[in-house]
Nucleic acid binder design. Structure first.
Length: 770
DNA sequence: ACTACTAAGGTTTTT
DNA sequence: CCTTAGTAGT
């Protein structure tokens, strides 16, 4: 145990060894929160305070869960089996699989990803003759998910207008349809679990008694439903209450837009009467200037729980700031700078290029490609989301649960087998009439299309029959062949990649079978009847049996069902990641939780970062600031920030002001490495990698020339793109100039004060040198 | 059934 | 500007 706790700093040690009570750990960026979390679990078990089965640890991503398991098994001699460690969704899935009867789900219920959910909603609208102009499918999806994330069923959602009333109606129809098909969306996994626990007292009490310690990672990202679920599991307000150990950082709350509620932190503190609040403020990641910048910036947010990071590392390098004339030039500068970093010995994978929105990556990618630098863009298509993989999955889904209409529609005519729109419409009509799934409706469709449909059904049935005795990887292989998918892509000219992805699925299945204990030597799945004897049985007063969900998944689920939920719940990063040494490109959001030696934060312009849509939302800019805080704290040794005067967005050149966040950084931690006083349109070709060597003079770029020409018609001296100061509106950028001479009017973007059109002969404008 | 065109929409994202 | 989805034409 000694070596378990050594090397912890006093705050970490205090957190790890807290008594079994509710605790809130405010863990700053780079303060070792995963370490605290895992060491606490190990400590609890090693000191005999709890057995592994009394532990539940919840994360948001599979990656975090995996990381925790890995570290834990390195620390502990005992098996991590029996512990509930996973994502909210993963754990709820496990729970619902075990108690599928009690929550009225088929044993083979399947999980819709967002794609499936959206297409299902589109289908629903069509089937009910709803105008999708009036009710955009995306809005409806957002509406439904939002309600579910708040724990609200259709009958409890308040409608304020006719539109909403209709949406509530559609929400209900949607849920019914899901129920008929035996599918659940992501939010539903949590809501079902919550409802089951709430409704079923013996079950609730069983789990409350079981989980002595519930540990939650990234608590600031929990939504209302997740918090309520935790409350229920921890037995909040009960005699037998588990200890809820929440770790989070309110300054890194960047997911409000998808329902996360930072308020849960203070709610938790209040409702659980938290006496143990520990702040981890010692940062082990970044050098001083970087950390100062982060602290200084985030101090501009109100409503903080309060925290200031410190480091023992020295000041280190200053934060370098660069002003580019265009997004292209910004990209060019990044490349030069990255090259010189690498010349100094920096590893490519230790250099990250961050941006606020994905659209920004293109210009950078182009430049990187032209320069011949290897790079990886994160957050692209996930493995299990690729069309060809989804097709194969759909066949497997139909074999496991033929009532999944989404799966049916996806592959009924893919590869094409002569089942066109007319056949489908006839089928949908029949399904509608009898209130059954498309698959079940096939026998009711007569005629020619009926026979093609019949052969499709035979194909699925045949595959199901033939794979009964096969192991999962062989099942997958057979389906790839029997479905005709492999054949189909072989005939396609660009099909090689797709075939490779399909082949990869067999590997994914093999790996899954091994990792999840479906391999040889594992207890065989013996069907629903056998499962009662597999786990411990508890009988309540009514004689209802409660099976503890501790029994391994492989005894309650067929390998196929398990693999299918795996495919829905895990994007398949393991399949996608090649992991060679390359520059790392990603959004700031996806950089959360990562760290790099050198970080570029790009596009720091008003309207982009902070994003313009943030100003419309309540506390929107605060969230953008937290996002900036996350970005800054990713860097260990080197931090660069850049902004540009012109940027192509949606096909139009935009003239943005530099981000307000620059005003919120400590001057003495910064180094402006581009000329600050300069007419940027004429002159100054910058040699970016050498801070001192800035010469004026040089060639204009094309954009500058165009703009200069366009601006020639403007008033004396004023140019598009120029920064100006107005007594009332403050600093702004001239976006456009109309008319000429004394009639000249300028459209000026004043950022915070908005867009104004001013008469140049009247308005008092000052030139701003920057 | 497949190709070719047109229209719309374009923060952030995991499960 | 550029991608994607949906539709019209062959």
């Amino acid at each position: 145990m000694q070596n378990l706790l050594h090397n912890l700093n006093p705050e970490q040690l205090a957190a790890v060894t807290l008594p079994a009570q509710s605790a809130l750990i405010l863990a700053g960026a780079g303060s070792g929160k995963t370490r605290v979390l895992t060491t606490r679990i190990a400590w609890l078990i090693q000191t005999g305070q709890v057995s592994p089965s009394g532990i539940m640890a919840v994360t948001f991503t599979n990656k975090a869960a995996k990381e925790m398991l890995t570290r834990l098994s390195a620390m502990l001699p005992v098996s991590t089996r029996g512990m509930w460690i996973g994502t909210f969704h993963g754990l709820c899935n496990r729970f619902l699989r075990t108690h599928y009867r009690d929550c009225a789900l088929p044993q083979t219920f399947q999980i819709l990803d967002s794609q499936d959910q959206l297409s299902m909603i589109k289908r629903l609208l069509k089937a009910n003759n709803i105008d999708d102009e009036k009710y955009p499918p995306k809005n409806l999806m957002y509406f439904i998910n939002n309600a579910k994330d708040q724990g609200l069923r259709a009958n409890r959602v308040e409608a304020h207008d006719p539109i909403e009333r209709k949406m509530v109606e559609l929400y209900e129809l949607y849920d019914n349809q899901c129920q008929r098909e035996g599918v659940v969306d992501f939010a539903e996994l949590l809501l079902r679990a919550y409802e089951l626990l709430e409704r079923n007292q013996p079950l609730r009490e069983h789990y409350q008694a079981r989980f002595k310690h519930i540990l939650v990672d990234e608590f600031q990202d929990t939504n209302d439903l997740q918090y309520n679920l935790l409350k229920l599991l921890a037995g909040h307000g009960q005699q037998v209450a588990g200890a809820l150990f929440a770790v989070g950082d309110d300054d890194q709350s960047i997911y409000a837009f998808r329902g996360a509620n930072v308020g849960n932190m203070s709610a938790f503190e209040r409702e659980f009467r938290v006496e143990n609040l520990i702040k981890l403020e010692q940062n082990y990641r970044s050098h001083g200037h970087i950390l100062d910048s982060a602290n200084h910036l985030i101090a501009n947010n109100s409503k903080r729980l309060g925290k200031n990071l410190r480091t023992d590392a020295g000041h280190g390098e200053p934060v370098r700031i660069y002003e580019a004339s265009s997004d292209l030039e910004e990209a060019q500068w990044i490349i030069e700078e990255a090259k010189s970093l690498m010349a100094e010995g920096a590893l490519r994978r230790e250099i990250a290029i961050l941006y606020r929105s994905n659209a920004q990556s293109r210009v950078i990618e182009h430049a990187l490609f032209a320069a011949g630098l290897p790079y990886t863009v994160y957050g692209g298509q996930r493995y299990f989301q690729r069309a060809e993989v989804k097709h194969a999955i759909a066949y497997l889904q139909l074999m496991d649960n033929p009532h999944n209409d989404s799966a049916f529609l996806r592959v009924v005519n893919f590869p094409t087998r002569g089942i066109g729109m007319r056949s489908i419409e006839a089928l949908q009509a029949a399904a509608e009439q009898y209130g059954i799934s498309l698959y079940a409706a096939v026998p009711y469709v007569a005629g020619k299309s009926g026979s093609s449909l019949n052969s499709f059904v035979k194909l699925v049935e045949g595959a199901r029959f033939e794979t009964q005795q096969l192991a999962l990887p062989e099942t997958v292989r057979l389906v790839l062949e029997a479905s005709g998918l492999l054949q189909h892509y072989q005939n396609e000219k660009e099909g090689a990649d797709r075939i490779e992805n399909l082949e990869q699925m067999v590997n994914a299945a093999t790996q899954f079978v091994q990792e999840e204990g479906f391999g040889q030597g594992a207890p065989a799945y013996m069907g629903p009847k056998a499962q009662a004897s597999a786990g411990e049985l508890i009988l309540d007063g009514d004689g209802t049996e409660i099976i503890d969900a501790d029994i391994p998944l492989n005894t309650i689920m067929s390998p196929l069902s398990a693999f299918l939920s795996h495919a829905s719940l895990e994007a398949g990063d393991a399949q996608a990641q090649a992991g060679q040494d390359a520059l790392q490109l990603m959004t700031v959001h996806s950089a959360k939780g990562l760290e790099f030696d050198a970080v570029f934060i790009t596009g720091l312009e008003e309207g982009l970062f902070p994003h313009e849509s943030s100003s419309r939302e309540m506390d929107g800019v605060d969230e953008e600031r937290r996002l900036m805080y996350v970005a800054i704290t990713r860097a260990r040794k080197r931090l660069y920030m850049s902004f540009t005067q012109t940027r192509m967005l949606h096909g139009q050149t935009r003239y943005n002001m530099k981000s307000r966040f620059f005003d919120e950084l400590p001057e003495d931690a910064l180094k402006w490495i581009s000329p600050r006083v300069q007419s940027h349109w004429f002159g100054n070709k910058k040699s970016a990698w050498d801070d001192a060597k800035f010469s004026s003079g040089g060639s204009d770029n094309k954009i500058a020339q165009q703009i200069a020409q366009k601006a020639a018609s403007g008033g004396p001296g004023w140019r598009i793109g120029e920064s100006v100061e107005h007594a009332k509106f403050g600093e702004g950028v001239i976006v456009n100039i109309e008319g000429g001479g004394s009639n000249a009017r300028a459209q000026i973007n004043f950022g915070k004060a908005g867009m104004k059109v001013l008469d140049l002969s009247v308005a008092k404008l000052e030139r701003v040198a920057r």
